[in-house]
């Protein structure tokens, strides 16, 4: 569907093998194999409670896997701490919008920029020391159309703009791999189109793995789809293949397919 699909498959940057997680005897995720490729958008779909968020938590090490192995750009990250994984370039968003509500849009983005700029330990310097980050932050704010809200507190933004701010903050880290958990949930049609365009744009140079319920968006922008059901992979392939799969149709019956 895109011209990228015609060229050779790009390199795998994030991969999981036999990934599993139990919660007190209940298996939330089991035997999940996943390959996320550079410059591709990979959708993870499935009914509520299928284990999509848990897979995200495992990949980003917010949860410790019970079984399996995770590799990020050739490095085994199965036992790493979540902040260390983030520093390696695997950055996630959250299902519930994750901004710093009482910081302004500018401050939110600067918080992300502070670490790579080595401006996060200085307890003796004034806040104006962070002004050197305004240029880079301003570019991101501009690119994502948030300029009119630059000095607005994140809590006062509309829901859609909060999600855009979250993406902008994530992009500030220039991550190699982006994990987006339902980035468009609860958005109006226009916001969905805007965010879809943003994601497509940022995936030109990065790998994206996203959980998305809006199947028309998935059909539109995703290169590969993995369907999860009761913690296990039900089907995978491009959207047309997956959508034609009778098991997937059954799994989605009564749901929003």
């Amino acid at each position: 569907m895109t011209d990228a699909a015609m060229t050779a498959e790009p390199r795998v940057v994030l991969s999981a093998r036999g990934l599993g997680r139990d919660f007190a005897g209940f298996t939330a995720v089991n035997n999940v194999d996943l390959d996320v490729r550079h410059a591709r958008i990979h959708a993870l779909i499935g009914p509520n409670g299928a284990g999509k968020t848990t897979v995200f938590n495992l990949l980003t090490k917010f949860l410790q896997p019970t079984r399996g192995r995770i590799t990020l750009m050739g490095t085994d990250i199965t036992r790493m701490a979540p902040d260390a994984v983030a520093r390696m370039g695997l950055v996630r968003s959250f299902q519930i919008s994750a901004v710093f509500p009482h910081l302004t849009v500018l401050e939110n983005i600067r918080v992300a920029l502070q670490r790579p700029a080595e401006l996060h330990r200085q307890f003796w310097r004034p806040l104006s020391a962070l002004d050197v980050l305004n240029g880079r932050a301003g570019v991101l704010i501009d690119e994502l159309g948030l300029t009119p809200w630059r000095d607005t507190r994140a809590a006062d933004l509309s829901y859609g703009r909060k999600r855009v701010l979250e993406i902008a903050t994530t992009l500030a880290l220039d991550p190699e791999v982006l994990l987006l958990d339902e980035p468009m949930a609860g958005m109006g049609h226009e916001d969905v189109q805007m965010v879809a365009a943003i994601i497509r744009e940022l995936a030109r140079h990065r790998a994206v793995l996203m959980v998305e319920h809006n199947l028309s968006v998935v059909a539109d922008i995703c290169d590969e789809v993995t369907v999860l059901q009761r913690g296990e992979i039900l089907a995978r392939g491009d959207y047309a293949t997956v959508a034609a799969d009778p098991r997937v149709r059954t799994a989605y019956m009564g749901s929003d397919a």
Partner: peptide, 13 residues
């Protein structure tokens, strides 16, 4: 404000 988010930005809280 949001510890999980701070971790996901790479801060060892």
């Amino acid at each position: 404000e949001n510890e999980q988010r701070a971790i996901s930005l790479g801060y060892s809280v």
